[in-house]
Amino acid sequence: MIQLDNVSYTYEKGGGVSNVNLAIQDDEYAFLIGPTGSGKTTLLRLAYMDLFPKVGKVIIDKYDSSKIKQKKIPFFRRKIGMIFQDYHLLNDRNLFENIALPLHVIGFQKDEIVDRVTESLEEIGLESKSEHFPDELSGGEQQRACVARALVKDPDIILADEPTGNLDPVTSFELIKLLEEINREGTTILMASHNYNLIKGRGHRIIEIQNGIVRKS
């Protein structure tokens, strides 16, 4: 479960989130919706402990932002898969190496890395492009690669920050469906988006944020 208790965070130059209380259950697929600058990214950064609340606390699994030690954060992040609008793929490595990276970090054996990465590539339909470098892929393919990288370590939670931001409507829709499949297999998903049309009517929970305040959940 992702739990935010009375969380506030303000940047030096203003903006952030204020007094957020939120609980996302295990296996839930929730959308975080709001205009640009409303605090969606801040909220996700607080969730993966890239930022720490100035007031309140974030609790995910056994990890509490008010108590966690710096050296424990890497182990906490291994339970979370992250997807970003600008992909964060490494241009000096091919697709296979990019997806394998979290597994090397965790310390998987070589054989298992090959099996898992191959499986992930098949799941996103990019098995034929495993030797390609990110700049040889389309935007949609790069974003699917990000999904595979998040998925390959079998995370409990996926946090997606505007993953459809750079994609055309058709590719965006395919990505949403891919994440729904992943969710059906038991992964909790919190996805931020400013595109309401893309997510409405899909039967998932929608959390609305404006000016750093959660208006509707």
Partner: peptide, 16 residues
């Protein structure tokens, strides 16, 4: 910087 950020996001320890 990007590489280091990616490492941090996927849960790499400082020593890694």
């Amino acid at each position: 910087k990007e590489l280091i950020k990616s490492f941090q996001l996927v849960g790499a320890t400082r020593s890694f």
